[in-house]
Amino acid sequence: MINNDIEIAVQKVPEDQLKTKPDQNNLGFGNFFTDHMFSMHWNRQQGWHEAKIHPFQQLQLDPAAMVLHYGQAIFEGLKAYRTKDNRILLFRPQDNFARMNKSAIRMCMPRFPAERVLQALRALIYLDKEWVPHAKGATLYIRPTMIATEPMLGLRAAEEYQFFIINCPVGAYYSEGFNPTKIYIEDEYIRAVPGGVGDAKTAGNYAASLKAQIGAQKKGYTQVLWLDAKQRKYIEEVGTSNIFFVIDNVLITPPLKGSILPGITRDSVLQLAEDWGMQVEERRISIDEIVKACEDGSLQESFGTGTAAVIAPVGEFCYREKEFTINGGNTGPVAQKLYNELQAIQFGEQEDNHGWVVPVS
């Protein structure tokens, strides 16, 4: 049973102690953090308690905190958008919290009261509303996180947790902006296996991807595209995004079979493509099929989807040290249209026909 009636206290930063806002045209990604954060605690006796919005501060953890030893850590990523008429909107926050609770179940962590936490998030962003950027294309990135805090050495699920939300104003995720990226197809290391935790947004998945990502970046590539764990043959996802291909005017993406994160932006793209009447396939697609399609010209474009980058066109990929160019290295029309429409909905410039947008106030 999840208690949606928890009280939420508010402790404001004194006016003379507020941080200086960064240059909105030079934000980067994940470099600056707002004045306030939200946190709450859980234990078996009290459930969720001590819920409060308070000044941004360091966490206090016992060296034996179980997250440090056994990896119980999950998180989400979503954004707040400032409209031209100065409203602030969230995009599909209920879906992010629903996915986070699924991650919690997989990682043997307590589910949280999503409805109440969404109310807290809206209050938190309203309190720090001046941190939501006015600059074109910039947003406020939101990072809900849950970690195991019980001080105990011994392999079992913890009995104490902390949930917190921190926010940071951000610009483009990739230095390329919306220009096509270069990706390296990894066939040595793997990200996730069927029956594992690939479909949970848990910290260990990202730690496991770092070695391959660093290797790809040293070779001049932005991201890694992962193949399946069994045959090293079928496309899975990019390190921070789901992946799409347009082959002979058909939009294709790998299916969700337990080793791929069910992306919120991925789902939004599938819905928009359906709205347009575009043929869509969620199916297994091999790297051999992609190489062949690239060689015979039927691969028209490719792009990644995710909250941070929204739509990330792919202009080139490398497989087994051979480079393949997609659409002349240019952004394709499907990626461009999806990006434009998603951004228009998120920034309140286009009608939201799916109930995706949630106003902060």
Rank of each mutant, 00 (worst) to 15 (best):
A309M: 14
N26Y: 05
E237W: 02
L261K: 11
I243K: 01
D199I: 04
G177Q: 03
G263A: 05
Q279N: 08
P169W: 05
A216T: 02
T331W: 01
P313M: 08
N249A: 07
K84F: 14
V310R: 10
Q300S: 10
T20V: 15
G332M: 04
P254R: 09
F347R: 08
T34Y: 01
P22G: 05
E188D: 13
N26D: 13
A203T: 13
A98Y: 11
E236L: 03
R284A: 14
N249V: 01
T253W: 02
Q346A: 08
E188M: 12
I326Y: 02
G328H: 06
I235W: 09
Q72M: 09
T325R: 11
T149P: 06
V132Q: 07
W42Y: 14
P93H: 10
P14H: 11
R320G: 04
Y206L: 10
I105A: 12
V117D: 01
V291M: 09
V246R: 04
D62R: 07
W131L: 03
I260M: 04
E282S: 13
P151N: 08
K21F: 14
N101R: 03
D35M: 03
V310M: 11
D267N: 15
D352Y: 14
N353G: 12
H69I: 10
P144R: 08
L118R: 08
E351V: 12
G198Q: 04
W42D: 03
K230S: 07
D296K: 09
A207P: 08
I190K: 04
A212P: 07
A138R: 07
G332H: 07
H69T: 12
C318V: 02
E281A: 06
K79T: 03
T139F: 05
Q231S: 13
V67H: 13
A208P: 01
E351K: 15
V357G: 05
I88R: 12
